[in-house]
């Protein structure tokens, strides 16, 4: 057998002081725990395989069925739309919160206080029953005549209720994340930009937000993962996302457990994929923190330029 450096026999000599034989410490408790865990795992696998109530054949039958895949697609879409709405709102609310105008920052504070202080489930129910609160939505002069009126039930469909409920709630959480990001940028950056004659909007877009990204992006990834799971609450609004699609099926065929398993497997697949993405995002940001290098955007531009795609790198300075 060739002795490579990785070969166990080729490893450095016994660490004992005079190269005497060493008796390794025994770990009886560790071995006992292995045995117990192995037994429990065997029992668990056994019940999963033998308990007919799991209905694995039903899971297999529905796993890639059109209704389930359609629900999955809607879940993904809802997650994306709600996150985009939440991020846009969050940036706006964070900037408002940091405003020197007390009315503006007060409104933002109130918004965050309300949407973080009540359960998302209750908020979704409110959006679902909004027509009981405001049967008609009208546009016009405040306290004066109205020009157009909408029937709330027509305007706020289950999709709209789901998007508003999830997005407005997410906005409050994103606001805090973005605010922390903005505050993490050294004040000297703003002052240097001001001294160069830049105005507030440009300083925010070109100087502060790009640097705030390393603080904003990792928790935003976390929130996206948790949003994916939170979308399941939308089933109460009769919006056919993944969980509600499963519920609709089992209300017909009474295969409740197998369909919940089907939905769960899909949730865990998607969250796993997102978690891997999250891992790389966090690694990227913890590394660039040490190097104080460029942000994601300029990295992407750099890569594209190397591939020969012409990118306006100074475009960041437009």
């Amino acid at each position: 057998m060739p002795a490579t450096a990785r070969d166990e026999h080729a490893v450095a000599p016994t660490p004992g002081a005079h190269a005497q034989p060493v008796v390794k410490l025994r770990h009886p408790i560790r071995w006992a725990s292995y045995v117990i865990i192995a037994v429990l795992a065997a029992m668990f696998v056994n019940t999963i395989l033998t308990n007919p109530n799991y209905g694995w054949d039903v899971v297999g039958e529905y796993f890639t069925s059109v209704r389930i895949l359609d629900g999955l697609l809607k879940t993904l879409q809802l997650t994306a739309i709600a996150m985009v709405l939440g991020i846009v709102l969050g940036v706006g609310l964070a900037v408002m919160r940091l405003s020197s105008n007390p009315a503006v920052s007060g409104v933002s504070w109130l918004y965050i206080w309300f949407f973080r202080g009540t359960p998302i489930f209750v908020q979704l129910l409110f959006w679902g029953y909004i027509s009981a609160l405001y049967p008609v939505i009208s546009l016009g002069i405040p306290f004066g005549p109205s020009f157009v009126e909408f029937d709330t039930n027509v305007l706020i469909t289950p999709v709209m209720a789901a998007i508003l409920g999830l997005g407005l709630n997410e906005g409050a959480y994103m606001a805090e994340i973005v605010r922390a990001g903005i505050l993490s940028v050294d004040k000297g950056q703003t002052e240097a930009a001001q001294a160069l004659g830049m105005k507030r909007g440009r300083i925010l877009r070109q100087i502060v937000l790009p640097q705030a990204m390393r603080v904003i992006i990792p928790p935003t990834g976390n929130n996206t993962i948790s949003m994916l799971k939170t979308t399941s609450l939308v089933s109460v609004l009769a919006f056919p996302e993944l969980l509600y699609a499963a519920q609709l099926i089992y209300s017909d065929n009474f295969e409740t457990i197998p369909l919940l398993i089907t939905a769960s497997i899909w949730y865990i697949i998607v969250t796993s994929v997102l978690t891997v993405g999250q891992y790389y995002i966090e690694r990227h940001y913890s590394r660039s923190e040490r190097l104080a290098g460029p942000g994601v955007l300029s990295r992407i531009a750099e890569l594209q330029r190397r591939r020969g795609v012409t990118v306006d790198t100074e475009g960041e300075a437009r």
Partner: peptide, 12 residues
């Protein structure tokens, strides 16, 4: 403390 913009190159 210089206050260069760390996400931009010297030229930028």
């Amino acid at each position: 403390r210089f206050n260069l913009f760390p996400h931009m190159t010297a030229l930028q």
